[in-house]
Design a protein around this nucleic acid. Structure first.
Lengths: 266, 266
DNA sequence: CTATAGGTACTATTGTAGTGGTAATTAGAA
DNA sequence: TTCTAATTACCACTACAATAGTACCTATAG
């Protein structure tokens, strides 16, 4: 038998070890069995199955029937029972941690340092999401399709809250309202196909870097001049994009910029 | 400095190790700092702080500023970002496991075995809760105050769903409707102060054993005759309880039992 | 004598906690 | 000015505990 690895891994992330995960999932599959059978089914060494089953019972994942003197029969505790218990415990821990960290966290003594490095694809995306969640007034973005799709739920949620979203999207099929489009990158090809993204929230917090597909770092800043610079970059990009499609001249450019800027400040 | 142990433990249950937990919580507290300072604040050995901070950054809990050649300055990623990321990952795993286990679980080949043993206080309580959650028609219980309080939310929820609850409570201050009361145990003292509990759901699943305060096993059964026996035991208890308070005679006893039973089947 | 059944008691591996020692830079005290 | 102590950064270990995996043993039913 070969249970899918992914399940075992995930059971382990819920707190079981490899043998426990194997034993429990096998037991669920076969219903009721003695230790020997569970060992065969799960691939757990025969020599180990007895102590593993004992810890499984202690952990509340299996029930025993001690019928004949030295012959124990095991039945799985229904997955619902196990899952509900696990969820409750986890949510308790999570809530406690949430409160404890909130108390510790002091915005006050963060030093005035310009740019911090955020490492790792998942970490970068998580940080972007949080920025979007916390945005009140407006969000300015510039990103390619891949990043856009990762952040789409949060962008929409942001918009529904009445938070303005504007910026440029590159190669995006269905951009949300107020988002300019650079379609095929004719006028705006990045060197070496490196796709930048910028997410700026309320002009006070900004994350920028290479899109999540590459494994490069991203940068976080609350520094006003950095933010000004990058928001300005997006603004320019937006107006260029409009000019290109409207075939109009340079005079209109400045007035458009003003218009956009006033729209932000309302 | 001495951060409360509980927070560190719980952070570890969310996937960090001791050093990571110490480093992150200390970093949140002090805001921005170099590795040395974090080491002093957190109690992590100086010799280890550098690799710990590296993994912290990789895990997305800290941001670095690599200003001067060999002087890195760290700032905590806001707890919200960390917590949201952790929750998302956990919920993903949890949902996957839920589905995977549900698929594996086959009620079919559970053998007809009479009584299974459930070990461990927490496991017993969890199982009771699940029984109450799954009950549709009626629940019959007999329990003492301590167990009652542990199960009170689920009992109430059960009742709100329109599921009948009846039985006896021992030493319980505010029993919910349809629950008889044995107040001070004058007429019903358990030997050796051992407090039994019984939770029977829809006459098809039943868990009984010593109350959670002792560390004894509980027993689970789906066997009809076991369930009949124990439900009958509760019924007798109920009528005796009523008789005692009403000071009436034995003839009424049988008619009361009938009344109760008809009430169940409706 | 082979498959089933139930073990004891190890070894190996890995992740983590904790220590010893090195070396460079900086801030004050002699 | 020179010496010293504190601060900072780092390598390379040891120690320990949890987990994974192995060697070997007995007993019984067919």
């Amino acid at each position: 038998m070969q249970l899918e690895n992914s399940i075992l891994d995930k059971l382990q992330r819920l707190g079981l070890n490899q043998y426990e995960a194997k034993a429990y999932s096998s037991l669920l599959k076969i219903g009721t069995a003695n230790a020997y059978k569970i060992s065969k089914e799960s691939g757990i060494p025969r020599a180990r199955i007895y102590d593993v089953m004992e810890t499984l019972t202690d952990r509340g994942l299996a029930m025993v029937e001690e019928s004949n003197e030295n012959a124990k029969i095991y039945t799985p505790v229904p997955s619902k029972v196990f899952l509900e218990k696990t969820r409750k415990e986890w949510e308790n821990d999570f809530d406690d941690v949430t409160n404890a960290l909130r108390e510790l966290e002091t915005e006050a003594n963060k030093q005035e340092i310009y740019v911090f490095t955020v490492k790792g694809k998942q970490n970068i995306v998580s940080y972007c999401r949080q920025l979007l969640k916390e945005a009140n007034q407006y969000v300015m973005v510039s990103m390619w399709d891949q990043m856009y799709e990762l952040l789409l739920p949060e962008l929409k949620e942001c918009q529904n809250r009445g938070c303005k979203i504007l910026g440029v999207g590159h190669n995006i099929r269905n951009p949300i309202a107020d988002m300019e489009m650079h379609h095929d990158g004719k006028y705006h090809d990045m060197p070496e196909k490196l796709h930048w993204f910028i997410v700026s929230a309320d002009g006070s917090k900004l994350l920028y870097g290479y899109s999540a597909e590459t494994d490069r770092d991203a940068f976080y800043t609350e520094d006003a001049s950095h933010i000004y610079l990058l928001e300005d970059y997006i603004l320019h990009d937006m107006v260029v994009s409009r000019l290109v499609s409207d075939k109009e001249n340079e005079e209109k450019l400045t007035s458009m910029m003003k218009e956009i800027l006033e729209n932000i400040k309302e």
